[in-house]
């Protein structure tokens, strides 16, 4: 609670941003498209391949997040820069970190809201067999952490420009680099391979999704999340340099 007392404006900014998502078509379009893609692959897998598993969800969602997350974060700061409301916000007694944190939490809530309906698949699976609950809980935790990192990077991308399309592209490239890092290991000299693998987000995510919540993976996500949020805050403060 102490941090909330020191950052009293996170709440109002969070609520405004969340209302802005759900008052406009953005949230609904994004959630529907997300669920349609995931649902298609899940049911294909279930009916055509006869596999009663959420594995396909945990494999697919990180890929969909690559497009989904930059799409929900691109406007967060770029739009305010363009319309001038950022000047309004930053001349009020509000810390830049509060602005970033409020917006981050709002986007994270939207991401969780998009993810929540996929829990229905779990009900379907439970009636057909007995899915490994441990790995399901770990998988969802991993998705939330991964989504959080993507959002923080997306906000950073949004802070760099007034143009939402550019913010989307930068955000997409950043998360794509993180995602692809462990897929290029073949082409990398052995000396760097383990370092690059450790930096890759999918490596840590698949560890967690297997049902093993290792502190190394959690520390990776939390520190990357913190670093990305600090990057976004510093970039917002850049106007003062």
């Amino acid at each position: 609670m102490k941090s909330l007392i020191e950052l009293p404006n996170v709440g109002p900014i969070y609520r405004r941003e969340l209302r802005s998502y759900f008052n406009s078509p953005i949230a609904y379009v994004v959630i529907v498209v997300f669920l349609a893609i995931i649902g298609w692959f899940f049911s294909n897998n279930l009916f055509l391949m006869n596999v009663a598993s959420l594995r396909i969800v945990f494999e697919l969602v990180p890929l969909v997040f690559l497009f989904f997350v930059p799409a929900i974060t691109m406007r967060l700061l770029a739009e305010e820069k363009k319309s001038g409301t950022l000047e309004l916000l930053t001349t009020k007694p509000v810390r830049d970190a509060e602005i970033v944190l409020g917006k981050f939490l709002a986007a994270w809530t939207l991401l969780a809201a998009a993810l929540a309906p996929t829990l229905v698949y779990l009900l379907t699976l439970s009636s057909l067999g007995s899915p490994d609950m441990g790995s399901v809980v770990a998988g969802y935790l991993g998705l939330l952490l991964m989504g959080g990192v993507y959002i923080a990077l997306g906000i950073f991308a949004s802070s760099l420009t007034e143009n939402q399309i550019i913010a989307f592209i930068i955000g997409f490239l950043l998360v794509l680099a993180l995602y692809l890092a462990d897929k290029v290991l073949l082409y990398v000299p052995d000396a760097f391979a383990s370092t690059i693998e450790f930096l890759a987000i999918d490596y840590h995510f698949s560890n967690i999704a297997r049902g093993v919540i290792d502190s190394r993976n959690i520390i990776y996500f939390v520190s990357l999340l913190g670093f990305s949020l600090m990057l976004a805050t510093a970039s917002l403060e850049r106007r003062k340099w």
């Binding site: 405004r16 209302r19 802005s20 406009s24 319309s83 001038g84 409301t85 309004l88």
Partner: peptide, 10 residues
């Protein structure tokens, strides 16, 4: 501020 920026969706 100049140009009076406001949140138009509120």
């Amino acid at each position: 501020p100049e140009m009076n920026p406001l949140y138009l969706d509120m």
